[in-house]
Design a protein around this nucleic acid. Structure first.
Lengths: 224, 224
DNA sequence: GGGATGCTTCGATGAGGATCAAACCATGCG
DNA sequence: CGCATGGTTTGATCCTCATCGAAGCATCCC
């Protein structure tokens, strides 16, 4: 009989299909309402509500009330990281896909991870930024390089705006198994990609699809 | 209703207290028999057996039969990483400890993580090895530096013995939140620490306790 | 106010699963 | 072979928890 943090409690919260679907949906990064999550999980509204209060009590979600809407979101990057870790194992031990569907492929290339970009594109981007010494890798920690402020300012991103969260963070990519960029900078870059309409979010999915010109623009700015 | 890897299935396996205790026990790295795990989890033998077959079917465990003993062990580092991630969240959201017990402290300083050393000591060790350019950090990847082979040979560790698994791997430390060294080299170092009796494993715990002279020896070899 | 919408609470139902005792296999030992 | 030890299987019991309909709050709009 062991002691320590109650991992069974946390895992069992994720262990219900309805709740797992909700959490998966929230991995998209945008906070959702109870009805949206009910739809997403395929359960009735009362059921969803019950699940949500359990996830809240477990500390996995945050709640923002706005008028009669109540927006549920993931409690933080650590929770997102845990979900990704579980996803990785499920992917590894799960029944082999007969054939990876097209959506799977799109997910591998680029997807939203909580509030930033993940997938092959994101990993390539971080690699390039480190190569160019704009960012500096130092353990899991990623720091801004000397030219970072001016470089990002040139493309309209202010790296000093939101001091609350770390600017750079590494996040392990479950499909590529290497790190991509998280933190406020990662979030800002994703914002820019979507704002510039270089890419759009696939409906009802975490996949991010670049338009041909958008892909060129992205590569010019981040992979050149 | 979403698709993708079945994370609820995996999480629900970890979500039962008895199974969580077993997995926790196996995080110590040594494979255990069904009866040991039953004791560890505080359930009867039949119950434990049932849980174990579920964990096996879920792909979370490996089994090695030796005579009438059957040794269960974690399926691999990825599973161990997932457990650590869940532990991190449980730690973060869990009820605040009134006062961290002495064992908690020991766990923070040094503990076994699957098959290698984790905790403050382990993180410090990796930092120092990278500082001295014996190992080279490159993303999450850690590679051997030019002088690695000779350096480790001098202390009786052959870095080329087991080609099956990667020699070096980074593993995120849930207490320190920074990486420590895993892989066959990490395992070999832990082996050496225990073989030289620099430290012993705390009974029924993942904690690793250094003796005063052992600590000096460790620091001389790895932190100098 | 009155009605509509979004969400939660209550209550009843039902199914899945955790549990253990007893019986059943398998291996090792003398 | 006969017995002890380590493990699994079976069967029965019990309880938690997911589920949804109906009713209850809260907020917004007209």
């Amino acid at each position: 009989m062991r002691e320590g943090p109650d991992i069974a409690r946390i895992a069992s919260l994720v262990g219900d299909p309805a709740r797992a679907n909700m959490l998966n949906a929230l991995m998209g990064g945008t906070a959702l309402t109870a009805s949206e999550l009910a739809l997403e999980a395929g359960v009735s509204l009362p059921t969803a509500s019950s699940h949500l209060s359990k996830l809240m009590e477990g500390g996995l979600l945050t709640l923002a009330s706005q008028g009669r809407h109540r927006y549920y979101g993931l409690a933080g990057p650590q929770v997102a990281g845990m979900i990704e870790a579980i996803t990785g194992v499920a992917e590894a031990v799960g029944p082999r896909r007969v054939r990876p569907g097209p959506r799977d492929g799109a997910m591998r290339v680029a997807r939203v991870c909580y509030d930033h970009l993940a997938g092959e594109q994101a990993v390539a981007m971080l690699d390039r930024l480190v190569d160019k010494n704009i960012l500096v890798r130092d353990d899991k920690e990623i720091r801004l390089g000397p030219s970072a402020a001016s470089h990002f300012a040139a493309i309209g991103i202010d790296v000093y705006t939101k001091p609350r969260r770390p600017v750079c963070r590494a996040c392990l990519d479950w499909s590529v198994r290497r790190s991509h960029l998280a933190g406020t900078l990662g979030a800002a870059i994703l914002d820019k990609i979507l704002a510039e309409k270089w890419a759009r979010r696939e409906k009802d999915s975490r996949a991010v699809v670049f338009s041909p010109p958008g892909k060129q623009a992205f590569e010019r700015v981040f992979l050149a």
